[in-house]
């Protein structure tokens, strides 16, 4: 029987092991539902990419997306959309794997026993992110391959230079995950909320069209999202598109909005956790 409080570094290491264990648990369960796993890759293709590509095809002039080229600097519609899907997938991880995962655990009755352990609830968000981002990352690689081989998307050899932007965006998704998880934990039935906000978030980030076509004030919402900057950096690097702002500014925007999202997310999540301990709603929705 242990009665001493662990040191800070020992506690940090234990929290990290807990996060990794949560991620591993998610991967194990995902592996046991192979059809669901396959759907992670296929769903964005049939729900988003194909309709967008077919619609875009009706506007091609001499086989070229002239309008897209004029607006963004690239006529590669499949490449443009596939990169949008990658970032859309990141957002989906935050909304569905991280945040909505809490609802699934609460419904299954596994959330409460986890909150009875010394692992901090904040760490559980990170653990969910590890699992979600590994699955999402693998799905993205498969998507890129499908885009390249099947749809003829052509990415520049230097596209990998955008990887750091994707990594920062992935970290910012942990912040968004905290924020949405806080809302999910306060709601009885958060499906509609998660579905609607995930869609709006992805659209505002410019996954399907340039953010510059978003009208008026709504465009400023896009500028508050880290994914807007990450996607623009990705498209500039991989497709040579015209950036929405000078690239150093894009990086600054990405870093600032990522840090803000993590800070706001953690504050909201902690407040929610405290509230749940007062109201007792952790398992009673």
């Amino acid at each position: 029987m242990t009665a001493t409080r662990p040191t800070f570094s020992a506690d940090l290491a234990a929290e990290w092991r807990a996060a990794v264990a949560l991620g591993r648990k998610e991967l194990r369960i995902a592996r046991r539902y192979p059809m669901n796993l396959a759907n992670e890759v296929l769903q964005p293709i049939y729900q988003f990419l194909l309709p967008s590509l077919l619609l875009g095809a009706t506007f091609l002039v001499g086989g070229r997306a002239i309008g897209l080229e004029a607006a963004t600097g690239t006529a590669d519609l499949p490449g443009y959309l596939f990169l949008g899907m990658i970032v859309g997938g990141l957002a989906g991880t935050a909304f569905w794997e991280i945040a909505f995962g809490f609802k699934r655990e609460r419904d299954a009755g596994t959330l409460e026993p986890a909150w009875l352990t010394p692992t901090r609830p904040e760490t559980m968000v990170i653990g969910r992110a590890i699992g979600g981002l590994i699955i999402g990352g693998a799905a993205s690689v498969v998507l890129i391959g499908i885009g390249w081989v099947v749809f003829g998307a052509s990415f520049s050899a230097g596209a990998w230079l955008a990887l750091p932007a994707l990594l920062v965006a992935a970290m910012s998704m942990v912040g968004i995950g905290y924020l949405v998880a806080a809302a999910v934990l306060l709601m009885r039935e958060p499906n509609f909320f998660v579905d609607a906000t995930n869609f709006l978030f992805a659209m505002a980030s410019g996954v399907a069209f340039p953010v510059l076509v978003i009208p008026g004030l709504v465009r400023w919402v896009a500028y508050l999202l880290p994914t807007t900057y990450a996607l623009d950096i990705l498209r500039v690097t991989a497709l040579g598109t015209i950036p929405i702002a000078p690239v150093p500014l894009l990086w600054l925007g990405l870093l600032v909005t990522s840090l803000l999202s993590i800070w706001i997310g953690v504050v909201a999540f902690r407040a929610t956790e405290r509230r749940l301990r007062v109201t007792g709603d952790l398992s009673q929705h």
Partner: peptide, 26 residues
Amino acid sequence: VLSDGRSLYWKLTARENLEYFAALYH
């Protein structure tokens, strides 16, 4: 033990369930 057997991961083995919770218990 504040809940019943539904509070386990049914698609994991008993050992896998305990491995996960052992990490959460540090």
